[in-house]
C-alpha cells in the first residue's frame, strides 16, 4: 500500500529572528563565545579531575566485575570527558575519553571485557593531566598510541571524531 505522506510548510521562525537588524559581526560573536567558554576553564579542570577520579573509583571498587550497569556509568563519564575536555582544547584527553567510550560501548553486553583495559585508560587520563605530559605533544601522542594499541588488541573498532 502506498504510504501516506503529509507535508507541512511552517514558517522558519529562526530565520525571521536571525534577520533582526543590529547585533555584532560574526567575528565578534565567535570571540565572545570563545571568551565565555574560557571563563569556565579553571573551574572545569577541577570537574574534569573529579570525573576521572569517579571512573577510577568504579574500577577500584570492591567486587567490580564489569557489570553492565557500572560499565554504562563508566561510558557516560567517558563521554562527558570526550565532549567537555574537547571544548577546552584538550584534544588528547578528549580522544582518551573517546577511546574509553569505544571500549565500553563495544563490550557493554559482553562478559569478555578486560577490566585492565579500563584501568589503562584511567591511568592515561591521569597522566595527560600532569603538567609534564600535558606540556609535551610527543608524550601526549605516545599516550594515545598506547591506548590505540590496547583497544586494537581487544578488537575494538575506533570511532572517528568530528571532521572540520
Amino acid at each position: 500500500m502506498k504510504p501516506v505522506v503529509r507535508t507541512h510548510r511552517p514558517a522558519n521562525q529562526l530565520a525571521a529572528a536571525v534577520q533582526t537588524r543590529g547585533g555584532v559581526t560574526i567575528a565578534e560573536a565567535l570571540q565572545h563565545a570563545t571568551e565565555n567558554v574560557e571563563t569556565l576553564r579553571a573551574d572545569y579542570m577541577a570537574v574534569l579531575d573529579e570525573k576521572i577520579a569517579a571512573i577510577e573509583a568504579f574500577t577500584r571498587s570492591v567486587g567490580f566485575s564489569g557489570d553492565a550497569e557500572t560499565i554504562r556509568k563508566v561510558y557516560a563519564l567517558a563521554n562527558e570527558v570526550l565532549n567537555e575536555a574537547g571544548a577546552f582544547g584538550l584534544a588528547e584527553l578528549s580522544a582518551a575519553g573517546r577511546s574509553l567510550c569505544d571500549l565500553t560501548a563495544a563490550r557493554a553486553d559482553s562478559e569478555s571485557l578486560d577490566l585492565r583495559a579500563i584501568r589503562v585508560h584511567v591511568e592515561a587520563m591521569k597522566s595527560l593531566r600532569r603538567p609534564e605530559v600535558n606540556g609535551d605533544a610527543q608524550i601526549r601522542a605516545a599516550v594515545l598510541e598506547g591506548l590505540r594499541q590496547v583497544t586494537a588488541k581487544m578488537g575494538v573498532k575506533p570511532t572517528s571524531g568530528p571532521t572540520r
Binding site: 529562526l14 529572528a17 536571525v18 533582526t20 537588524r21 543590529g22 547585533g23 555584532v24 559581526t25 560574526i26 567575528a27 560573536a29 565567535l30 567558554v37 569556565l40 572545569y44 570537574v47 557516560a76 563521554n79 562527558e80 565532549n83 567537555e84 571544548a87
Partner: peptide, 24 residues
Amino acid sequence: EQSWLNLEKVSVLALEQSAYGMKI
C-alpha cells in the same frame, strides 16, 4: 566573519547530557 549577526531575539532550548556540558 565581518557579516553582521543579531541573535538577540532567538529563543533556544538547550538539552545537554551533563551539567557542565550545559554550562559550556
